[in-house]
Design a protein around this nucleic acid. Sequence first.
DNA 1: GTGGTATATCTGGGATCCGAAATGCGACCA
DNA 2: TGGTCGCATTTCGGATCCCAGATATACCAC
Lengths: 247, 247
Amino acid sequence: MTQVLDSTKADDIALVIEEAIVSGELEPGTVLRQEQLSEQFNVSRTPIREALRRLAALGLVSFVPNRGVRVRTISREELHEAFMVRAELEALATEVAATKITPDELAELEAVEQRFAQISKDLRAREPGDARRSVMGDWVRANHAFHDVIYRVAGLPLVEQLAKSSRRSFSGPAVWAPGDHSIDGLYAKNAEQHRAIRQALAAGSSAGARALARDHVLSSFVLLETILEQVGGSWPQPKRAPAKVSA
Amino acid sequence: MTQVLDSTKADDIALVIEEAIVSGELEPGTVLRQEQLSEQFNVSRTPIREALRRLAALGLVSFVPNRGVRVRTISREELHEAFMVRAELEALATEVAATKITPDELAELEAVEQRFAQISKDLRAREPGDARRSVMGDWVRANHAFHDVIYRVAGLPLVEQLAKSSRRSFSGPAVWAPGDHSIDGLYAKNAEQHRAIRQALAAGSSAGARALARDHVLSSFVLLETILEQVGGSWPQPKRAPAKVSA
DNA sequence: GTGGTATATCTGGGATCCGAAATGCGACCA
DNA sequence: TGGTCGCATTTCGGATCCCAGATATACCAC
């Protein structure tokens, strides 16, 4: 291992499996066999079990005593609730950020906002299918980057942690979505909302920023719901064989 | 073990330790030795370690690789943030509850509200010190019961889970507080706010219920802050010897 | 042929063992 | 006398082993 800083194998493995789950590489419902994972990562079952315990506490997998763990499935209601929670948390973070954002941070925010707008524009210019899907990862990351700046400015680590945890519930599937011209308006609206939020932050309008942030997250749910409908109302399939995690 | 339903030792132990932490029995900063815990619970270190992993994921303890785990300390800022988060979550839950509460549930809510009001009144009638402290546990439980009804009515399991998790950060210390006549007004205000929330729910005023719930949680922070000042600005001490968990 | 039961096998939970990292203490040297 | 190096002890992370619970399968009775 070319590991410099402190970390246990259990932690490393948990992160890899977590990434595999949220990216959709591991389908919800997949049963995770401890022995299989142990030989995949070339470790014994002990760190595997500790990693799984951690993921269970995070709600990403569910333990059934003596019957193994499986990747947690998320229903439409749970997805909706996760968005409602994130809407409240984002509203709070954005409200606080409005009171303390500096010019430097505003400039940084504008940069990531424009990057997001550009990617969003590129996305809409592409035809649906693989061409579009290939930039969805960038789109998701740029979107996260915008909100991450706000979290950092707000300086509320607990809010940030919870919001990101909530975000993990649904950021994966979007990456696999093929896209469709009918929702291009929603993508454009999303980018526009980012601009409005930044302007409210620049104006120091905490009440306005709060309301805009809340609406933004809630309307993002509409976007994701539409995306999910395109893939048949169920979860997108991973490309490679399931239950195989890259070490 | 007189265990009927499914559960692993790691889960059982995690719950016991968690209870010990949130109740203040285990002081923040305490170093938890795996071997000591294993002989306390009469199990090997394996389930202990898995339990600690779970608690670490929940943020109750922090792992330092090769140097053990210690009970997480919580600063005043973190406490404040936890309350802000809970305020948002309670606001959301109460808003939703207002749209779907039934007469039966309203009656139940009124019952627990009155129980809380009664305990609150008893509390204020007592002199500070042990006499008052002996009912603080009842006061905390009755308070939780009121909010739990709202969570149940709202039917938002994620919100409920997060709010309760946030609540755990600070419900413990209040139990050990000796109390003081100077904050009797805050106790009374708390009970009064419960009444206002119930009335808003009865009226089906979701916007009003939301605002009242938010204010209620935020003003509860003022109450707890005052309580904490009484114990010298630091955390109250447990009564029995630290690092001993009842099995 | 079908249903139930017994058994074999598989998998996960827990115990024990081993190696490694970190701390503490003591001895030796400047 | 003070500081540093090194060894011993402690404690953790990881591996291996064992046992119990669960599922699947085969066999037998009806």
